[in-house]
Design a binder for these strands. Structure first.
Length: 114
RNA sequence: CGACCGUUUCGAACAAUCGCGCGGUAUCAUAGCGAAAGCUCAUACCGUGAGGAAAGUCCGAGCUCCACAGAGCAGGAUAACAGAUAACAUCUGCCGAAGGCGACUUUAGGGCCAGUGCAACAGAAAGAUACCGCCUGCUUUUGCAGGUAAGGAUGGAAAGGCGAGGUAAGAGCUCACCGGUGUGUCGGAGACGGCACAGCCAUGUAAACCCUAUCCGGAGCAACACCGCGGCGGGGGCAUAUGCUUGCUCGGCAGCCCCUAUGGAGGUGGCAAAGAGGUCUGCGGCGACGCAGAUCCAAGAUAGAUGAUUGUUCACGACAGAACUCGGCUUACAGGAACGCGUCGCAUU
RNA sequence: AGGGAUGUAGCCAAGCGGUUAAGGCACCAGACUUUGACUCUGGCACCUCGCUGGUUCGAUUCCAGCCAUCCCUG
């Protein structure tokens, strides 16, 4: 495993749907985590979901950046072969990065991905 | 000094580290494709990276494809006048109207003398009329017949308004002023305005149907063009080895290879540095704008790139994210800045 | 990108430019009953009829611009 590797993003809608239905769910105050084992390839993919009801385009973009920044810290240590979907909750809109980072760390440990 | 008016303009700044999209250069040790060159991926460095509204998608265009002899109807849009513009429902100027002490602002502003419809309630009566009243005549009175829109009452609207003359009482019946209509004349590019004369037979509503004039083919970058593993087809060849079709034979269907049409997933172009482009100067124009010269310009994603941490400063940060591209309009918005022989008020000289 | 619909009382809703804006459910008070349900009678302040302007004598209704929700096409 190299020291830095690219973050692969989840693009297919049916994989999102399968994660919501079949994946294990870990919920916090700011984000919710859906984890599914990737059987097809030994890769870890990340999907970020922000609902339209969370705010306008600027707010949604900002939430995505905050979550991506929080995830970036843990990415080199994540185990291979999982599909991870992070869903932003309403308090996440005004949350600073440090808070989201600490919560995401707790959830990832709970999911045994680290 | 205070309160405004108009026209522009800015929309946090800087540094360091980590991270992201795109472009360029370099490296190919590793991974994939390839005979190779090389390409992809990756890494390093350099450059660059959201708005005044990017928004709403309300108008107008470019661009692309489809349709198209010509004419008319239907439907839609616009509506004083003159211009600007590629075009417009935009903009400029100007006229009329409305508002403001004023600088100035606002204005869907054609036609109810083509026709049709509607005007609740109130009121005597709503486009045709006399309830009360006034006057005249008849009648002993009650009342009857006629004249009359000055007054009352109703209403958003009641015989153009108001004053004087006039009259039986009244009435544009007559006159002055105002309003409105028509004709003439003068000014103006025109809408329109000034003046003179005639004359007052008739409400409001076309953001009611409608009439008049002008304009309008349809769809949209998920357009459209190209490539295209597989699949479903067409043609040709090979092989009769294998499978199915009844145990066998023939025949048929599968099979393998080549060519070819279509085009689902996906990809590339469209589409990224350059156009109806910005800034400055000069000239023309009241102005929108036009002409000439100089100069400036690098976002281009495709589940969608701008963030985090630390430090410094201030006005302590609002509304808000490009998605083919322009010109407008509308809406949202913390707080600033500049200009004006702009306005009003107060004080002083 | 292109198109459509809706917004009226807590909920479901009707409404021809002229009303104090129908109804139904719910809610409140009273009657009936020993009590409750059913039934009957009355009430319901609320709604600037999503918001802001305009047309009109008069707007929930007509026109324009916004806001919110929902739906359709590719």
């Amino acid at each position: 495993m190299n020291k830095t590797r690219r973050i692969l993003t989840l693009k297919e809608n049916h994989l999102f749907m399968r994660s919501y239905r079949k994946g294990r769910c870990f919920s916090g105050r700011y984000v919710a985590l859906y984890v599914l084992r990737n059987y097809e390839k030994n890769q870890t993919k990340l999907g970020i979901t922000v609902s339209k009801s969370r705010g306008n385009a600027v707010k949604r973009n900002r939430v995505k950046r905050v979550i991506r920044e929080a995830y970036r810290v843990f990415h080199p240590f994540i185990k291979e072969g999982f599909i991870i979907v992070i869903v932003a909750k309403q308090p996440c809109v005004d949350a600073p990065v440090s808070v989201v980072t600490s919560e995401l760390e707790a959830l990832l440990e709970k999911a045994a991905l680290l």
